[in-house]
Write a protein that binds this DNA or RNA. Sequence first.
RNA 1: GCGGAUGUGGUGGAACGGCAUACACAGCGGACUUAAAAUCCGCCGGCGAAAGCUUGGGGGUUCAAAUCCCCCCAUCCGCACCA
Length: 803
Amino acid sequence: MSEHYVHLPIEEKWQKIWDDAHCFEAKDDYTMPKYYALIEFPFPSGAGLHVGHPRSNTALDIISRKRRMEGYNVLFPIGYDSFGLPTENYAIRTGIHPAKVTEHNMQVFHKQLKMLGFSFDYSREIYTSDPEYYRWTQWIFLKLFEKGLAYKAELPINFCTGCKVGLANEEVVDGCCERCGSPVVRIVRSQWMLKITEYADRLIDDLDTVDFIDRVKTSQKNWIGRSTGAEVTFKIEGWPEGLRIYTTRPDTLFGATYMVIAPEHPLVEAMADRIKNIDAVRDYRAKAARKSDFERSELAKDKTGVMLEGVTAINPANGKPIPIWISDYVLMGYGTGAIMAVPAHDTRDYEFAKTMGMPIVEVVAGGDIEKEAFTDCETGVLVNSGFLNGMQVEDAKKAMIEWLEKEGIGQKKTNFKLRDWLFSRQRYWGEPIPLVYCEHCGWVPIPEDQLPLRLPDIEDFRPADDGSSALARATDWIHTTCPKCGGPAEREIDTMPNWAGSSWYYMRYCDPHNDKCLADRKKLDYWLPVDWYNGGMEHTTLHLLYSRFWHKFLYDIGVVGCPEPYMKRTSHGMILAEDGRKMSKSFGNVINPDDLVREYGADTVRAYEMFIGAFDQTIPWSTAGVKGCRRFLERVWRLQDMLNDGQGVRKEMAASVHGCIKKVGEDYERMKFNTAIAAMMSLVNDFYQNGSVTKDELRTLLILMNPVCPHITEEMNELIGFTTPIYASKWPQYDESALVKDEIEVAVQVNGKIRAKMMLPVGMEQDAVRELVLDNPEVKPWIEGKTVIKFIAIRNIVNVVVK
RNA sequence: GCGGAUGUGGUGGAACGGCAUACACAGCGGACUUAAAAUCCGCCGGCGAAAGCUUGGGGGUUCAAAUCCCCCCAUCCGCACCA
């Protein structure tokens, strides 16, 4: 009899063996086929690993371990996204330097990850707050600056009142900070911006070249928000340049009965002396400016606005004079900040026109504009529209754009929802922006050979009340000389957002210790792109988008040789607490991976997290389920006591074993880990049913299970007498012929209802099947006295249709 | 409002258009045990007297629908005046 399964010594033993053998380290052997598997590197928070990490990590650990057994040179790296606000906030509370906190937290993470037995290449561990790492983050920023893709602009920005920091568009959720939940207000501030918009088209178009799950593609597309239409200039008396608008419905130009400009539109001040009610207009603008974005959208139902009295625009299609309004439902940041209002065919314009009593003119027939705006582009036909009359909407759009271009009053135009990326943070714990400001020379980059520009050591990490960074107090650091003219200059005191370091970390993994460049080009060419990247949906329009942008930029300047960083992107579902709520300290329902590993073992935790349900689905935790997986491992463990003297795969077990090899291999690839484990459970059940198992059968099971449960399988492999460890073994091939049976059970339906089950030889002629089936005593009563009008025999189903 | 996802036994979940409920959890029974736990072996959706009905609801396509199409309902997650 074998000893009981005691996980702890087994897991420690094998983790040490793997370490000593360096068996999971990627080799720089370019003759081997490569495989690059990546999970999002964790932020080393003080709370340590949570149960979500093992879900994603185990999934790609399974793939990595399987690939190695298939003969690939696998890069499966790990690191830490170690800059960031939570660490700085902790430093503010405790006075402990963020670098120290980070160091400690990373050690905790490292230990926890090892304890779970992930086959990371720990020799390539990196962290973004390492000066040797952020040196290259800064270098990339300088390249962006050099190419004009980083610029400083005085703009209204999203400012978190809690974190006292500016936020990117992507970081604002429901008008609040995605991190701390405090309200976000608009303040005007001089900020560094990155021109991600320059890459908008390619970020959409190149999605066709990669294998991302559809959800990810769709949300990136929607976030970038490409729309096509036209820009049209309306003449305005007394303002020669006219008012330029953007519309996606140029076909409805004849129906434009007024115009609306955003409150901040320059027209207001440019024409201030002609606007009779300028005080009322300015008053409206001031009120709009005070509203937060959140309030603006909250009040979306009630349209407000003021008409500019004394100013008239001309509808270029029909020459009619139309009024101009200002209203905050038009946004300065999109298109031209001005629209033509076609109330008959736009719901917002319709509402506004109803509220303000503006005329509504139907130009697309097919709806009932008495009731609501008719916005359908499929069925409508143009009316009241001169040369467009009788056309379908799509044809009318083309015809109108043609006309506008010929007349020189407009042209085709594409617009995006995507805005440039707000890149400054008024914080200490981030990469310093490697630029100085000189009175004479303006913004000057620090010479590359002076990188990294290190963060200065300071003691007080609090941001100033005016929202500027704690770095503002590091006056010795700030005052410097201009690299260009040698005169006095000041350093930028904003730092980069935490998205900076994570935008290129997968490159550094290819060559983590290089001190000449961010990574050797040969190594990048070998390893990139990442073959499989798994991560959270919450990063779809943040990290994933940002890093695609940086990658494309680095591709353009010749640093990398492929246009996309990630070939395949998948996403895991969230794990909820047992009560169905989010795991949260405040609910007191957090499950700690450490405790689980101690009590049940890493293999059980890994198996459970893979067995819990469909990988991409949100799922509640179940302690009973964990115990079930532990029970499964014990059941596997006891197979040692059932060994017989047989060799190879016995005939009576061949179908089970080879079926399992096939199923498990396919399911791992499709991320159907739950059904892969179910298949292995079934195989184990089959062994128990049989009463014994051969060494070779057992070893096959152990290899199949190894990617999920690496420790127990290695231990058993050794215990039953094999000297080659599984990590150095080959992934098994299934024998197709073993899956082919002589006979199969066929379900016989009459008119779609099961009436009998029969064993039939495989490959029987259709006519012979028919004869046997129709003669079956269980079938006969259902067809007696009726005519068989159809007989369908497919795979293991026969359907007899009678009348 | 728009976009995405989900809806199957007491529970987590399976099911290339082809036997709905694999695999587990919970429950029940048996063996073993002085006993319990553990283990092993079985049983195990609901309604209906039955024929049957039953994958959120209603239609449709099909020899055959959880799966495909149309219309609803519910829940969750994004985005939100983007002209």
